[in-house]
Amino acid sequence: MLRLLAAAVIIFTMPIQSFEASVKEMPFDFNVNPQAGQETLKIDLLLRNKANYPLSFEFGSSQFYEVEIFTQKGEKVYSSSEGKAFLQAIQTIAVNPDDSKVWEEQWDYRHKGKRVQEGEYIVKARLLASNLNGKKLETKPESEASVYIPGQNPSFSQAKVTGGNGEYIILFKARPKSGKLWYTVEDGHNELQSEKSLVASSNDWKSFRIKISLPSENIPENGTVVLHLYEKNVNGDIIDSFPVILESS
Rank of each mutant, 00 (worst) to 15 (best):
K232M: 09
T92P: 14
I11T: 07
K196G: 14
P15E: 11
S18F: 05
E58I: 12
Q106N: 11
K232N: 06
K211Y: 08
T224F: 14
P27T: 06
P176Q: 05
K84Q: 01
S248F: 13
V9C: 12
E221K: 10
E120V: 05
F86C: 01
Q72F: 03
K73L: 11
I90E: 07
A159F: 10
S81V: 07
G113T: 08
I212L: 12
S146Q: 15
K173T: 05
I69Y: 01
Y78M: 00
G119L: 10
T92R: 07
P215I: 13
P154Y: 07
K42E: 01
G223C: 03
T139Y: 12
L246Y: 03
L181C: 08
R126Q: 05
A6F: 13
D187H: 02
S79K: 02
K124Q: 05
R126H: 00
L229W: 05
E191T: 09
L45K: 14
A36T: 00
G60T: 13
R175M: 02
E231R: 14
D29E: 08
A89H: 02
D187T: 07
A200C: 10
Q72K: 11
D187G: 15
L127F: 05
P15D: 04
S56E: 12
K160Y: 03
V161H: 14
I10Q: 14
E138I: 10
K180S: 09
E195Y: 08
N235E: 13
S62F: 15
I169N: 09
K24C: 11
L4F: 10
E105V: 04
K114V: 00
L5Y: 04
W205R: 12
W205D: 08
P15F: 03
Q158E: 09
E105S: 08
V161T: 09
V116A: 00
L227S: 11
Q72M: 10
L87S: 13
F242L: 02
I11V: 14
G119Y: 03
V32D: 04
L229A: 09
V116C: 00
H189V: 03
K196A: 10
N33V: 06
I149Y: 06
A89F: 04
T92E: 13
I238G: 14
L47S: 03
G188E: 03
S194G: 13
K24E: 09
K84I: 02
D29A: 14
I93K: 12
F70A: 15
F30M: 01
